[in-house]
Computed example of a mutant assay.
Amino acid sequence: MKVTPLSIPDVLLIEPSVFDDSRGFFFESFREDIFRKETSLNVSFVQDNQVSSRRGVLRGLHYQVPPYAQGKLVRVIHGEVLDVALDIRKSSPAFGKHVTNILSAKNKKQIWIPEGFAHGFLTLSKNSEFLYKVTSFYKADFEKSILWSDPILNISWPTNIDIITSPRDSKSEAFSKAYIFEEL
């Protein structure tokens, strides 16, 4: 496993060791002891989620507030997405900044997104299946969302895709009105 801090160093790109041969491939998508050793993180995952989306579906930018804030380990098992993590930790030097990455079944990359980040993704391929592990259970009353298209965020979403959002995501809060993590 290769772990690379991204431009916001708390967000980690994780590339598994993939064993390819004429039959196909094998890799460990998660192994706690190696994950802890390579990332220096001591997290416990309590729930796995799987999402299927068609081209143009944008989900996010979602997060949960304390005491149910979530760290996420995300990956794609079918198709390709543009993944976005937005830092909403007031004390962070990267507050209000974001990182983007292409995750796909082909590249097998994963992203670790810690608590204190809003997260979203846009399906670039015909369809996608997105898996993610979380460190806290889903609690609807603690879930929030930031408007994906808020111009203050300056996220470069592809312009060649007609974006489809849920009614809830299209009415998300502006970044200026979002819950901000004071401390973690």
Rank of each mutant, 00 (worst) to 15 (best):
Met1Leu: 01
Met1Ser: 12
Lys2Leu: 13
Val3His: 05
Pro5Thr: 09
Ile8Glu: 13
Pro9Gln: 02
Pro9Arg: 13
Ile14Met: 13
Ile14Asp: 01
Pro16Trp: 04
Pro16Leu: 08
Ser17Ile: 10
Val18Cys: 00
Phe19Gly: 00
Phe19His: 04
Asp20Leu: 05
Ser22Ala: 11
Arg23Tyr: 01
Gly24Val: 00
Gly24Tyr: 02
Phe25Pro: 01
Glu28Cys: 00
Phe30Gln: 09
Glu32Met: 07
Glu32Ala: 13
Glu32Asn: 15
Arg36Asn: 15
Glu38His: 15
Thr39Met: 14
Thr39Asn: 08
Ser40Glu: 14
Leu41Arg: 12
Leu41Val: 08
Ser44Asp: 10
Gln47Ser: 11
Asp48Thr: 07
Asp48Pro: 01
Asn49Phe: 00
Gln50Pro: 04
Gln50Glu: 15
Gln50Lys: 11
Arg59Pro: 00
Gly60Cys: 04
Leu61Lys: 11
Leu61Ser: 04
His62Ile: 01
His62Met: 02
Val65Asp: 05
Ala69Met: 10
Ala69Ser: 14
Gly71Val: 07
Lys72Gly: 11
Val74His: 07
Ile77Thr: 15
Gly79Lys: 14
Asp83Thr: 05
Val84Asp: 04
Asp87Lys: 07
Asp87Gln: 04
Ile88His: 03
Ser91Asn: 08
Ser92Asp: 07
His98Ser: 15
His98Cys: 12
His98Asn: 05
Thr100Gln: 07
Thr100Asp: 04
Asn101Cys: 09
Lys108Ser: 14
Gln110Asp: 00
Ile111Gln: 09
Pro114Met: 11
Ala118Ser: 12
Ala118Pro: 05
Ala118Gly: 09
His119Ala: 04
Gly120Cys: 03
Gly120Met: 02
Thr123Pro: 15
Thr123Asp: 09
Leu124Gly: 06
Leu131Met: 10
Lys133Asn: 09
Val134Met: 15
Val134Trp: 02
Thr135Ala: 09
Ser136Gly: 08
Ser136Phe: 10
Tyr138Ile: 01
Lys139Pro: 12
Asp141His: 10
Asp141Trp: 03
Glu143Ser: 12
Glu143Tyr: 06
Lys144Arg: 14
Ser145Lys: 04
Leu147Trp: 12
Trp148Glu: 06
Asp150Phe: 15
Asp150Trp: 08
Ile152Gly: 03
Ile152Pro: 02
Leu153Arg: 12
Asn160Thr: 05
Asn160Ser: 14
Ile164Phe: 07
Thr165Pro: 00
Ser166Cys: 06
Pro167Gln: 14
Arg168Ser: 13
Asp169Val: 03
Lys171Glu: 13
Lys171Tyr: 09
Ser172Asn: 01
Ser176Tyr: 14
Ser176Leu: 15
Lys177His: 11
Phe181Leu: 14
Glu183Pro: 00
Glu183Thr: 10
Leu184Ile: 12
